[in-house]
Design a binder for these strands. Structure first.
Lengths: 172, 172
DNA sequence: ATATCCAGGATATAAAATATCCATGAATAT
DNA sequence: ATATTCATGGATATTTTATATCCTGGATAT
């Protein structure tokens, strides 16, 4: 029963991406630096978020990552499932029918009660995660966190974000 | 995010031990056989349950395991924590302060909001597990499960359980 | 063209879960 | 007392998973 460290990194990256303005992006290498993580490994997780439709990636110079949708529509559950996979934490191995005196399959038609109880608890967990929106996380940080920390985060994003050409509008 | 297989085995064993009468015990080897598990490995988990005060063990011939308290006072949470450990699934690595521009420690006095949200979800998970009593699991099984399965389980316990001498009463 | 950046595969290393074995000691039957 | 049964706990091997790195290829802005 443990979550991989990638989950923490993924959530922090998503929160940081919430600070980029408009269609701008933030390179993965910058985020890796911001959190003191190995870039090669962080890209794996960012990649998973992209595959899950939570992030969008822009290749090429001036490329990077941005959120794929509004922060109100991204929940911690989305991120956790993208990184950890969608399988339940408790997987019933049906060991009740692994003994020497195995009954006919029809005797095991009804689901294992233990599995039912464990799944119920997991639904409660996921429901709680689904209620935690990224917008809430960000708002709470801006409101409650130390001003120095908020300012430093904002400055970092400001420094590394890359504005995306809205149209092909080189100023004329 | 996954639970070890030992959790499933531990819960099934606890449920089976609920069927032994009085102060009787069930040898660990018998339970391993019942579920088709490796005895040496299952003993590890039974050991963990004993250390957590959920089971009692009786050494010697006629020895084995029994529940340490009433089934109403044993929850799935007790068992899961005994096997998986009491640490939370999400451990905040404080990567927010691992970047190159580290602020003074006082700037991180307030807890990381991401950690708070993750812990909240985990509390919901544990609360749900704490509400699932072993007595409920057993009662539900007796009521809902296939009669053949119930009978087979009862017969297995009947066959392997070992009555415990009530006092040191060698008949005289 | 060139430089920058993401995508994805291959691979290496580290850590944890799973599984087995053996020596020890406790309790009991004989 | 002695032998037997069985849990205990340590040591260890095997397998799986997580973590981490590297490299090739493709996309794109300059």
């Amino acid at each position: 029963m443990k979550l991989s460290e990638g989950v923490e990194a993924a959530i922090h990256c998503a929160a940081m991406l919430a600070g980029v303005e408009g269609q701008g992006t933030l390179p993965g290498a910058a985020m890796a630096e911001a959190f003191g993580l190995s870039p090669s490994y962080l890209l794996k997780h960012l990649n998973a978020l992209t595959a899950a439709g939570i992030l969008e990636s822009v290749p090429g110079p001036a490329g990077g990552y941005r959120l794929a949708r509004a922060t109100e529509r991204i929940t911690l559950l989305d991120i956790v499932l993208a990184i950890e996979g969608r399988d339940p934490a408790f997987r019933c191995g049906e060991i009740r029918q692994c003994g020497p005196a195995r009954l006919d399959a029809s005797a095991y038609a009804k689901p294992c009660g233990i599995n039912v109880a464990m799944q119920k608890a997991e639904r409660a967990y996921r429901a709680a995660l689904a209620e935690a929106r990224l917008s809430d996380i960000v708002a709470k940080h801006m409101r409650d966190a130390d001003p120095r920390s908020v300012a430093a985060n904002r400055a970092f994003v400001e420094r590394h974000q890359r504005p995306q050409k809205s149209t092909k509008q080189t100023e004329r």
